[in-house]
Amino acid sequence: MEARPTPEILLEPGALDAALRADVRAGLTATPKTLPPKWFYDDRGSALFDEITRLEEYYPTRRERAILVERAPEIATLTGARTLVELGAGSGEKTRILLDALPLDTYVPVDVSGEFLADAATKIAADYPGLTVRPVVADLEEHLAEVSGGPAELVVFLGGTIGNMVPEERAAFLATVRSLVGDDGAFLLGADLVKDPERLVRAYDDARGVTAEFNRNVLSVINARLGADFNPKEFEHVAVWDPVEEWIEMRLRARSAQTVRIPALDLTVEFAEGEETRTEISAKFRPERIKEELTVAGFGIRALWTDPDGDFSLTLAVPTSV
């Protein structure tokens, strides 16, 4: 039997429950109401998102994978990385393209879900027997600065997840990543690009309604973990393009006036008919904006690659001298 890598735990016991309680209380008592997208993901939410990545309308996963397949040898040449730190690692499926191409000694997957992370790390350790796998259970919002990698490390953040952050959050995140890579490391960032708004909306409002179910799953998570009595079917999935911010917003719109009780918070929340709760932003980027934000954080750009259609981007950045 293959050895199961023992995760390093940066997440304190009960920290996720406390964060959920704080986020739900703050978000559902705000005007307008909001909920963070991190709470989409229980087992069902993860399965739904996996299904989303295979939908015809949802291009980002396919495009990013294609760029990785084409550019992984070049990434290996440009970085010479011996340690790979993956933020928000998930299953590590796309990461295997890098694991195959780079002369790595160590792989450090970082994710908030300890059991899921341990399972994925065990599979990778079994498939790459010469690789040291060191999983780290951490919340990137809280523990990023505490993640330790190794010499000549490459930090990767794939999937376009950077787009779920508002500009101020991105700036803080990128500055912390700059500290994490040190002076001899590199950073590989996946980011979705601005394109036809109708196509973008379709990617977040598919014909089969899978994304709608994924969006409503945040209410099921609150029901299960906080004892709330949301009826998810009474909330309509909405995806809209904001041309000023250049991001997609996902929202849940109350189909009727509702009163929702959340016993764990001793909280009652009123929803007016038609009232919308924002559950996610997904910012889309122009190459010049990616370069500008990385430059402000202290990076220089070694390469910026896109797929042939210009749908998605991978940017390889290295620290600039202080």
Rank of each mutant, 00 (worst) to 15 (best):
A186Q: 03
R170S: 01
T320Q: 13
A47F: 04
A72G: 08
P37S: 14
K291D: 13
G182E: 01
D42I: 03
A118Q: 14
L98I: 11
R202A: 15
A18V: 05
R134N: 08
L87I: 00
P308I: 12
R216W: 05
L78M: 15
A254W: 02
R286C: 06
T315F: 03
K33P: 02
E64R: 07
T34V: 12
E293F: 09
A264R: 04
A126M: 05
A191F: 04
L102I: 03
R54C: 07
E57S: 11
P103S: 06
V260W: 01
V194D: 03
L294N: 08
L304V: 07
L99M: 04
M250S: 03
P232K: 07
G185I: 02
A121Q: 07
P129C: 12
V218L: 13
N164C: 13
D309Q: 15
F235D: 06
A254P: 06
I75N: 06
W241D: 14
D196F: 02
T79F: 02
F230W: 00
A118W: 03
D192Q: 00
W39H: 03
E245F: 03
V296K: 08
A3F: 04
L200D: 04
E246G: 08
S256G: 01
D266L: 15
G92H: 01
T77H: 14
E142A: 12
G114T: 06
P151A: 07
V210D: 06
D119V: 06
E276K: 04
Y58C: 14
E236S: 10
A22K: 14
V322T: 11
R134E: 05
E2K: 12
R71N: 11
P135A: 13
R178A: 04
G114I: 05
S321A: 15
D192K: 00
A254G: 03
T61A: 13
S321E: 15
A257D: 05
R134C: 08
I301F: 08
P73D: 15
G298P: 09
D42A: 06
V194C: 00
L267P: 15
I52A: 08
Y128G: 06
A254N: 04
G160D: 08
T106C: 10
T161G: 12
E2F: 11
R71S: 14
A3K: 10
L193I: 01
S321Q: 15
L28R: 11
L267Q: 14
V69M: 12
T77R: 15
S179F: 07
T295Y: 09
V181A: 07
A152C: 07
T268N: 12
E234Y: 00
E168K: 05
V244Q: 13
Y204A: 13
T161S: 15
